[in-house]
Nucleic acid binder design. Structure first.
Ligand SMILES: O=c1ccn([C@H]2C[C@H](O)[C@@H](COP(=O)(O)OP(=O)(O)OP(=O)(O)O)O2)c(=O)[nH]1
Ligand SMILES: [Mg+2]
Length: 329
DNA sequence: TACCAGGGTAC
DNA sequence: GTACCC
DNA sequence: GGTA
């Protein structure tokens, strides 16, 4: 990420057709009813409160009113992605993101259609789920052996549709096949080793523990370091796929020297168990991707991403790293 | 019908 | 160059 | 898949 003003331009424009909410919130410009009680600003025009998620109180937890719908659509999105039907998968993903952040339960095809990113065909599917609780298309597309195997293989970190298909046509069907016969890159070996843990969601309470662990290590290296978890955690999700840690320092200088020492410190204590990408440079940003585990019995292995950025890029880096991916795109 | 973000590393 | 990832 |  370059964090140039140019890159950020689209974030501030066309607010009324592209939705201003980071979680990509709900819908198109018109419907959006939501009380929104800003005590200090009684004069805030009602249209604004209805139009902008940022003008409404967020409350503490991010709700997931339409989980039954997004869970079903997720299955199709994943299946299309595994079949390399990229753009169809993107369409599904955008709709899922919009529905996930729609602020109340959807009860009709028309209501679904009012959401930006949900067109006629997806609205039909939403309606079917609302009425029957499931989608016949899922059985059709996702439940044969090939589809299920591709999904299984793509759960290996570092394996995408091409690799999964390659393993499939070599006759592999199980993770055990991969372990004993498969040709795996270093990333994929790690992904397979921790398959179950990496594919488990992380409760946000545990993410907070990991944040504190990294913060303690950071403060042992340099006083004043800012350690902030971004990603789905910062967007308020109850569970997260991984932990995205942003590190910076208000002196505007220290970011240059903390990256490797911080990682080394986390390695020494055994917190970092495996490295995926030890250093990825982008402008002044440094990024680490790896696997970690909190001390103590029964802790799972978790995917950890760390970026270290100069303080002057703190805000845009936090924006990028908080996402969602859909919002950034 | 054209387009769907923009950047990086591993192989 | 391609595959995969953030 | 959806949007323009
Ligand atoms: O293709 C991508 C993927 C990620 N990001 C940014 C936004 C995202 O929020 C952040 C962290 O990525 P991650 O994959 O961890 O996404 P997440 O939003 O944290 O979701 P999850 O709960 O799956 O980790 O990096 C992008 O800009 N583009
Ligand atoms: Mg994340």
């Amino acid at each position: 990420m370059l964090y140039s003003p140019c890159k950020l331009r689209h974030l501030q424009k066309d607010t009324d057709e592209k939705n201003t909410s980071r979680e990509d919130d709900d819908t198109s410009a018109e419907d959006n009813t939501r009380e929104g009680s800003f005590k200090k600003r009684k004069f805030l025009p009602k249209e604004l409160k209805e139009k902008f998620a940022c003008a409404r109180p967020s409350g503490k937890q991010v709700k997931d009113f339409n989980h039954h719908i997004t869970a079903e659509l997720e299955k199709l999105a994943a299946a299309y992605k595994s079949k390399k039907d990229t753009w169809r998968a993107l369409g599904y993903q955008k709709a899922i993101s919009a529905i996930r952040n729609y602020p109340r339960p959807i009860t009709s095809r028309e209501e679904a259609l009012s959401i930006r990113g949900v067109g006629g065909r997806l609205a039909d599917k939403v309606a079917e789920i609302v009425e029957s609780g499931k989608l016949r298309k899922v059985a059709e597309v996702c439940e044969d052996e090939e589809a299920q195997t591709l999904q299984r293989f793509m759960g290996v970190w570092g394996a995408g549709p091409t690799t999964a298909h390659g393993w499939y046509i070599q006759g592999y069907r199980t993770l055990e096949d991969l372990r004993e016969k498969g040709n795996l890159t270093r990333h994929q070996q790690i992904g397979l080793k921790y398959y179950d843990d990496i594919n488990s969601r992380i409760p946000r309470e545990e993410v907070a523990e990991i944040e504190n662990y990294v913060r303690s290590a950071a403060h042992g290296i340099k006083k004043g370091l800012i350690v902030m978890v971004c990603g789905s955690y910062r967007r308020g999700r109850a569970t997260c796929g991984d932990v995205d840690v942003l590190v910076t320092h208000p002196d505007g200088q220290s970011h240059e020297t903390v990256f490797q020492p911080l990682l080394n410190k986390l390695r020494e204590t055994g917190f970092l168990t495996d490295d995926l990408v030890t250093q990825e440079d982008n402008g002044n940003q440094k990024k680490y991707l790896g696997v970690c585990k909190l001390p103590g019995e029964g802790q799972k292995y978790r995917r950890l991403d760390v970026i270290v950025v100069p303080y002057c890029e703190f805000a845009p880096a936090a924006m990028y790293f908080t996402g969602s991916a859909h919002f950034n795109r």
